[in-house]
């Protein structure tokens, strides 16, 4: 078990978003966290990446409490990419990717040949070598997202947490980014945890799906076990048909209609 959340309670201020959640991430797997908006997916990911300190319970990295490890040591094994990160205007792709080397640098070793190789390799792997000197703000959305992932790669961690890496991207670019993730997983054996919105892509690219609802894990396991018609109703309040993806053989969710709202008096006109 590489990364583990044990009975974590998470929230902001007085508001508790996740309570008493258990989750384990096996080494060398790709895990996708899915669930409706506001269910605590990103909060959980932030806690796994020690960006958010649990109010209760603990997060364990390789069996040790992550908040007790030196943050710089954690950064050498675990990379986190938050949702829609922002960069200062004028920052070039090469500079951004180079900043991924931050945890490996010290004041007396600012730019080793190892740094240079890692940056070059990360640019190469994400297909950004030709754009290295372009400012980030001149790139397309897909290229920009690849640049951020490239930064996380340059960090050289074998654990990678990605929060909605495909937001704002068109379908082609979403597939492109996820193919990159798959490549990282297959070629370098990296462990990846990501929050995804698109269920069908999640099913296709992840080994394990974790479905969350209202701060709890509703189901976890292989895509085929998790993405069922019952679960769609329970977690997403959606009547759906689940068929087999004709291309990948993974489950494919075809939505039918939203389930009627549960609360009395909510949108009464629809009930008539």
């Amino acid at each position: 078990m590489r990364l583990q959340a044990a009975k974590v309670r998470l929230g902001y201020g007085e508001r508790v978003v996740v309570d008493g959640l258990d989750l384990g991430i096996e080494a060398g797997t790709v895990t996708a966290i899915i669930g409706p908006n506001g269910c605590g997916k990103s909060t959980l990911l932030r806690a796994l990446g020690r960006l958010l300190k649990p109010m209760g319970g603990e997060v364990l990295l390789d069996g040790k409490r992550i908040d007790r490890l030196p943050t710089r040591e954690v950064a050498k094994v675990l990379g986190v990419l938050p949702q829609a990160p922002t960069a200062p205007e004028g920052l070039t792709v090469a500079d951004l990717v180079a900043r991924g080397r931050h945890p490996h640098q010290t004041w007396y070793r600012q730019w080793s040949s190892g740094d240079e190789e890692a940056v070059a390799a990360a640019l190469e792997m994400t297909g950004l070598a030709d754009l290295a000197e372009r400012p980030l703000d001149e790139l397309s959305g897909g290229q920009r997202q690849r640049a951020w992932i490239s930064m996380a790669l340059a960090q050289g961690t074998d654990l990678l947490l990605l929060d909605e890496p495909t937001t704002f991207l068109d379908l082609a670019h979403q597939v492109e980014v996820l193919e990159l993730v798959r490549h990282l997983h297959r070629a370098a054996g990296r462990t990846v945890v990501m929050v995804l919105h698109d269920l069908n892509l999640a099913a296709r690219y992840a080994d394990t799906l974790v479905a969350m609802r209202a701060g709890r894990v509703a189901a976890a396991g292989a895509p085929r076990e998790v993405l069922t018609e019952e679960l769609m109703g329970e977690v997403f309040e959606l009547d759906a048909k689940v068929i087999e993806d004709p291309v990948a053989g993974t489950p494919l969710v075809v939505p039918i209609r939203p389930r009627p709202a549960r609360q009395e008096g909510d949108r009464p006109d629809q009930r008539a």
Binding site: L51, A75, G79, P85, P103
Partner: peptide, 9 residues
């Protein structure tokens, strides 16, 4: 968030 992820205090 990114800074923390990179191990910066």
């Amino acid at each position: 968030d990114v800074a923390r992820g990179l191990g910066q205090n």
